[in-house]
């Protein structure tokens, strides 16, 4: 799974900490998601979709090994 959360965050001009607070997780969790070390649950993906105001498919993409 690949994602463009870092880009979406830059568009909104918010830090990892801001995003973490908005969706109720720790900053380290956001960092792990951005680095593709952790694939979030559907609930968290939908919360991110809410913040970015975009469908989940726009910032999460399946990679070849998925």
């Amino acid at each position: 799974m690949e994602n463009t959360i870092k880009v979406e965050r830059a568009i909104l001009n918010i830090t990892q900490d801001d995003l973490a607070k908005r969706i109720g997780v720790s900053r380290q969790t956001i960092n792990s998601i951005e680095a593709n070390r952790y694939v979030p649950s559907t609930v968290l993906a939908l919360k991110l979709s809410d913040v970015f105001n975009k469908p989940v498919n726009d910032f999460f993409k399946l990679s070849n090994d998925d």
Binding site: G24, V25, S26, Q28, T29, S32, Y38, P40, S41, V43, L44
Partner: peptide
């Protein structure tokens, strides 16, 4: 110690 929550508990923890 093992059973207590973290300061910020989320799905990853």
């Amino acid at each position: 110690m093992s059973l207590s929550k973290d300061k910020l508990e989320d799905e990853m923890t």
